[in-house]
């Protein structure tokens, strides 16, 4: 029987994926890419929860992953509707185009 995966490596991978998603949010200005990077970050968070749940063999980690999953679905639905609205109003996908409020 081979050894199981160390918890540290799972958490390390989750942290690296989260950092990559954060870099994507900060660097990219195309709003579709910003949404994709948000998905990467949410997914990394779910990975951290599942890793911790596997460490203690408890179901709570996967339950939290399910909640993150449903939240990501809701966020994508609203976010993509906003992207369509931005494209319709400003004819661009640049997030900086909508940096001003109309008060």
């Amino acid at each position: 029987m081979m050894a199981t995966v160390p918890t540290e490596y799972g958490l390390l991978l989750a942290g690296m994926l989260f950092a990559l998603g954060l870099i994507g949010v900060l660097v990219r200005r195309n709003i579709v890419f910003i949404l994709m990077s948000l998905e990467i970050m949410l997914n990394a968070t779910g990975l951290a929860f599942v890793t911790a749940g596997a460490r203690w063999a408890q179901a709570d980690g996967q339950v939290m992953y399910l909640f993150i999953l449903s939240m990501a679905a809701a966020e994508v639905a609203v976010g993509l509707a906003l992207v369509l609205k931005l494209k319709r109003q400003f004819k661009t996908l640049d997030a900086d185009a909508a940096s001003r409020m109309h008060g």
Binding site: L35, V50, A57, L69, L80
Partner: peptide, 25 residues
């Protein structure tokens, strides 16, 4: 990691449903 249920949900919901929404848009 021993979370087969989460793996199935990842494929079906994340890679299946959410990514299809992105492709649609």
């Amino acid at each position: 990691l021993g979370a087969a249920f989460a793996a199935a949900l990842e494929v079906i919901i994340y890679a299946g449903a959410i990514m299809v929404l992105f492709v649609f848009v």
